[in-house]
Amino acid sequence: MKQSRSQRALGRLLPTLVLIASAIFFAFPLLAMARFAFQNLQVIDLGWNNLFEKWSISSVTASFSDDFFAEAFTLSLKLAVGTALFTLGLLIPTAVWVHLRLPKARVFVEFLTILPYVIPAIALVAGIVVVKPHARWFLNSDYSLIPFYVVLALPFTYRSIDTGLRAIDLKVLVEASRSLGSTWIATLFRVVIPNLRAAIISSTFLTVAVVLGEYTISDVLLKRTFPSFMAQYRQSDPRGGYALAILALLGTTLLFVAIGVLSKSRSTRPQQVSRSQENEILV
């Protein structure tokens, strides 16, 4: 059974078409948004003839000078930092403990960390609204979002730290450190954490990406975070709203590219098993 050349060409045709169609589908919305955001023209006039006219970043600068921009953006940044620290403080000891003392609980803990998929943000916020009258002292504060953002990012962050721990010979490292007379705290900070650097950075970036993009909870609870500001700002100045969205996208893309580079540099280590790819998959 020999495939003829034309048959083979036909076999390559479909994948090529799929690749081209995908490139168009994924590029066009972004290009359209770029024109909406950065061309100083009425949306209704945008056409082929003025494709290169009046490009400017005035929409961005205008949105930056809005009174509420700085407030919303700093709130989101603070939330991102808080969520990242909370995540690391909670997950590193937990994951290390599971690896060292309770390996048989590994699957169970992993299962717990994907529960945020079962209870999506909109259902979680419904629960928060129920609890709110009983914990106003806590939930009235903007920073009360932090633990819930930790929950939302949990599937990504735990996986990233867990993958990092799998890549090192934790037991040997810890035993060596302990038998040389180091305390548990010193072992954690001077042996475990330096070895997890890449995993810590990528889980931090993931957290930041999640927090800067989270809209559901902050919208329902009427918190003035950056995404809420963006949605509101688009109502008054559409071009500025689109421009902010593009900046947000660029920021998130950079974070994810950095994560990709980090996980690749990790996978060149000899001990790394085939799980490196898995880091990118969400569930």
Partner: peptide
Amino acid sequence: SSFSGVAANMGGLPLAFAFLSLLGRQGLG
């Protein structure tokens, strides 16, 4: 695969805005 890693997490507002400017009533598409 790298682009998929980014786009798979690209829900939210920017995505909605992008499609509004492509396929909205006044969209370029």
